[in-house]
Design a binder for these strands. Structure first.
Lengths: 345, 345
DNA sequence: TTGTAAGCGTTATCAC
DNA sequence: GTGATAACGCTTACAA
């Protein structure tokens, strides 16, 4: 049925090992046999069984991508396809397949990871988010295996990572609003257990402190990274007796939700309320008004995290060479900074 | 190093085959040995090598997802994450991993597919788009292998598929504009070699014909499924001496580009020009004005195409049970239909 | 330069 | 119920 290396060997009149050598471009092999074998492969329509090869070589030529257990939320955020594009770009270039693993719960998450690691189906794994007490990191601590984290590990965990300096980035985002004269600045964020949320909140608070603005917990609203979360958060913020004049959203999707809520209640952006988002997804530029957003360079994050993993897999050294991808604020119309100058975009 | 079934066997004082039986829940095995073996597995931290298992069982418990060769374009369209979410949902539920395969060119495409099929790394493949003279279908014709197509195969190819009735859907979208009184209706679409493009164009033309409106090639603009394509297309359409009063965009992303172009040139939507889009991506509801769009039920498309594949893999029958997913027009503000009644979002 | 044979970690077929 | 033993399709010493 399936044509194996033996069939090719018979047809070419050589031994299986010779065929194997031709496939792997072994140096000491005569041109003549090479031709014969290649011809036989062609005629028989031979294709190597990667499974069998992997079994003996102990490499799978694939890397596992662990989607966070909040799969739905993650898939629906424009962040996902963009980071995946970066990952798949280098994976393809370097000859690796991508094994996607989604999960429903945190427990399933751990199972997935264990299966990937021990099942020998991948040579390394990419973790696409990190939270406090992340059980995935515990697993990797127990069973050393090439892995790279998109985000920041909790202190105490040794794993190469790629991240933005989220504290500083959110400091700058908040600072932008302060510089524009705002003092009542709210903060919309996702799951507080996520380190990215904690870091950005820290940056937000740092900026307030520096400006001598007291931090008011009433003005911090945490939900999930979904448009709905931003919408509800904004509704609540606008209902407070002393409503904020500006909002830092730790994700563009939250910002869009917030804009929708503000719009429905008749508030003008940026005149009544200014908004700055995070990630600078494609849509930020197209929304109305266009959204000022911190560009974290998603595509590059994806590329870099994949590159780091592959390097780690190849050298087999846990080179502690983690990468901080720079971020920069893209100023558009949602904060009013541009209005004073010109009306573009 | 890695703990194998043999190690477990030694530890539990049984033979490897017994361990294997415990793993696969063989019926005739004593409770006592089961416990012993399970204990040994636990103590040793054993995890089965899936590769080895797959090699002998000839199933990989994974399905391959072939991203079209226009990878970048595909990734950037909100269609992608949503269809992938549907696919991964059922894959996870049914216990399959997802092997993603991207490619740069059509030739690489074919290579990828062949590698997937012959490499025995997946039990079936999902093709996420279909074009005229699709070489991928040729490959599948030559080497029968479980596969399902998202879209419509060219006639003559036997492959289960999941699709919308795109001719009818686009007929209805166009008809909506005609019913609103429009006669000068343009059509923005992606790559004309894609069958989805051809079908939707056919529907557009059918509606015009039925209404006695001549078809004018000047008003059909084909580019790629990117915002930029819609933008440029709209620019061109608006520059024609007799500009259209309405546009059918065969993809929401094109519609967004078109809206941006119209906005920049000072045209009001829907007053100066009405726009109807396709796919009803999340963003359609949030854009300004909100976009009237044909909901093709992306998530369900993904679910269904995966379910069909899995069924095919299990029964090993190429049951010619393809599925047509219904589509329905979601009327919002970009065509002016709602304005006559009320102003909701 | 090429062939022989052992082995990768499983499962399946036969025995007992 | 459980244990040998032979595959699965490939790579890789070691020989020749």
């Amino acid at each position: 049925m399936t044509v194996t290396i033996k069939d090719v060997a018979v047809r070419a009149g050589v031994s299986p090992s010779t065929v194997s050598r031709v496939i792997s471009n072994h140096p000491r092999i005569s041109e003549k046999t090479k031709r014969q074998v290649r011809l036989a492969m062609e005629e028989l329509g031979y294709h190597p069984n990667i499974l069998a090869r992997s079994l003996v070589k102990k490499t799978a030529d694939a890397i596992g991508v662990l989607i966070p257990s909040t799969t739905e939320e993650f898939f629906m955020n424009p962040f996902f396809p963009e980071v995946l594009r970066g990952i798949s770009d280098v994976a393809r270039r370097e000859g690796f397949d991508l094994l996607l693993s989604t999960s429903d719960s945190n427990k399933e998450d751990v199972k997935s990871l264990k299966r990937m690691i021990h099942g020998k189906r991948v040579d390394g794994v990419l973790l696409l988010s990190s939270r406090m007490q992340d059980p995935l990191l515990d697993v990797l601590q127990d069973h050393p295996f090439p892995a790279t984290l998109l985000g920041r590990p909790q202190s105490g965990f040794e794993i190469p990572w790629v991240n933005n300096d989220n504290v500083d980035a959110c400091y700058r985002a908040t600072r932008h609003l302060i510089d524009l004269g705002h003092r009542r600045i709210a903060f919309l964020c996702g799951d507080e257990a996520l380190l990215v949320t904690q870091d950005r909140m820290q940056g937000y608070q740092n900026a307030l402190k520096e400006a001598g603005i007291p931090i008011d917990r009433k003005w911090i609203y945490a939900s999930s990274f979904m448009e709905q979360g931003g919408y509800l958060g904004m509704m609540r913020l606008l209902a407070t007796s002393e409503r904020p004049t500006a909002v830092v959203a730790s994700d563009d999707v939250l910002a869009f939700g917030a804009m929708r809520a503000a719009g429905e209640l008749g508030y003008q952006i940026p005149d009544d309320i200014a908004i700055v988002g995070f990630n600078n997804v494609k849509l930020a530029e197209m929304s109305n008004p266009s959204l000022t957003s911190m560009d974290v360079h998603i595509f590059e994050l994806g590329k870099t995290v994949a590159e780091l993993l592959i390097e780690q897999m190849r050298t087999h050294k846990l080179k502690e060479k983690s990468v901080l991808v720079p971020s920069d604020l893209v100023i558009r119309h949602s904060c009013g900074a541009l209005n004073k100058i010109t009306h573009q975009n």
